[in-house]
Design a protein around this nucleic acid. Sequence first.
DNA 1: GTAATATAGCTTTTT
DNA 2: GCTATATTAC
Length: 658
Amino acid sequence: MSHLRSLNPLQLRAATYGKGPLLVLAGAGSGKTKVLTSRIAHLVIDKKLRPEGILAVTFTNKAAQEIRERLERLIGERADKIWAGTFHTIGLRIIREEAGRLGLKPGLTVYDEEEQLLLVNYVMSELSMSNRDLPYRTVLWEINLAKNNCLSPDEYARCGESDLRDAVAPVYRAYQKKLSAMNAVDFGDLIMKPIELLEKDEAALRKYRERFSSILIDEYQDTNRSQYTMTRLLASGRADLCAVGDPDQSIYGWRGASVENILKFREDYKDAVVVKLEQNYRSTSNILGAANSVIVNNEDRIEKNLWTGNLQGEPVVYEECLNEDEEARFVVKEIKRLKAADPAMKFRDFTVLYRTNTQSRPFEELFFEEGVPYTIIGGFRFFDRREIKDCLAYLKAIQNPDDSLNFLRIVNVPPRGIGKATLERVHRISDAHDASLYEAFRRARKEGALNRDASDFIGTFEMLRGEMPGMALHDFAGRVLDITGYEDFWARKRTEDADVRVKNLQGLVASVRKYAETHPKATLADYLNLVSLMSDADQVDGRQDRVTLMTIHSAKGLEFPVVFMAGMEEGLFPHKRSVEEETVEEERRLCYVGMTRARRLLFLTSAKHRTSGKETALQLPSRFIAEIGPAFVTKKAYVPAERIREHMDAIRKILNPG
DNA sequence: GTAATATAGCTTTTT
DNA sequence: GCTATATTAC
């Protein structure tokens, strides 16, 4: 039974406990992924369950991939048959299978945040509301929160009352209507739509309950109302359910996640068995001691005793620096020192974690200057660049003719003489006939209501639509960039950044090619869906020898021999908004998550002066620093350079009197 | 009617 | 620092 070898007794119990429901409370570094994969292997090998009946929900697609890879070693190619992915990936799979029953057409588009924001803008303009009346971002936030809480526009409008709710409700309603007209779904819908289906369609509910004989949910402490509901719908049949999580690592409350879900698991699922994994195999006892001494300050917490048999290791180091540049300098210095001291150390053994994405800048600059190879996870991704977004908008608009939002985005990019007046005219046609923007353009063209430029473009667009089915994906992407003049539009601008944009466009085509080659049967819709669902954390690539820079949120589930946590300052971490909103306990859990990523060495740094925007502020060390038990940490306050100079002078005088 | 340029306003964490 | 909008130029 090689798949159960090397499990400790509690891990073994979690992996082999018979019919669920089962709740595994797995502390940081307690071998959670190992238990999860062992359990799946056990279900397939010993319990003879069909792999296609196993649903494993993970927090990132990469985590799902990792489980699949580990599983492959245990059960071979059967590993590919299990359903493993994020709630969103699984939701999309169900939606695509059941598009018809949900009033959607095949080839639907998934809108990302930027597209959502454009749609909110669009809808609000139609309702004669502007960003000044109510910021688009606020509205979008509210809509997303409603969806995370599993509230339809009607339910949202009805539950509770506030001025904001009254203002947002009609926008949410109109937004949802537009989404379906555009044959598109947003992230929230990826969970809401399957719920809708399972609730209203008995046959569908039966089908999916029968399909999944076993369900495993990772990071259960970070599930929101919608995800909880989807889980309940699928699991309350005869499927056994195994939820894995750690309340101390709940860090997505702001996204609607509710620790309650894990806390009331035993009420929700009667006869649930709980297994606690409290032995940490990851960190030194100093690191674990430091992390524990921080997390115990949370009042709203279930007692847990995470321990380790690992060596004591070095004390955690806290270093206060002059400013953010010096903070970066300290990190580079330490990386170089540690690498010199131990040649076995690689760049990929180090990570720099921070609270906000903007903090990456000084590190990026200094790492570049000092020749330290690095990768930044999150922030501005390749797929968020304007030229890439434009190109994807072309592909989406061609692929899904109802997607008026993306059609609108590209119709006059590059500028081709389709301006405000033309668009207004076509919009009227679109409204009158309840047709998509593209459809309206075609009508206008037939009626001769378009000028030459517009008419030509619609002709080109139709031609491309016709060519799509017969072409390889990358050839088609290249063809679109060529024939629409989009690539040329940048190539003609002879500015420095235009060159980069052209290169990025070629990079995109290369990425499509790579995808097409590894997925020979995939359609354009498959590629576009994949790109929409790709998360930042999915990019972490341990094969490259680079230092990883990312937010603590993105580091969830990862581990590194050496961790630097930067910006340990009041106002930044805990963030000042969390202090205002009284969610400091979640910040503390975030701090705990960050600290427990470290295996051997943990460095905490702060800047005495930090510049944000054009203001430089005097910063105080984070309260979390003071919470660390003194036995586990060495603290060094910032000493101004003059003081060092005075000190050196004094020493010189002693050594060299007179 | 359309395109290029200036300005204001925001920047916590993300599937 | 970046984008959506307002203003001005073509």
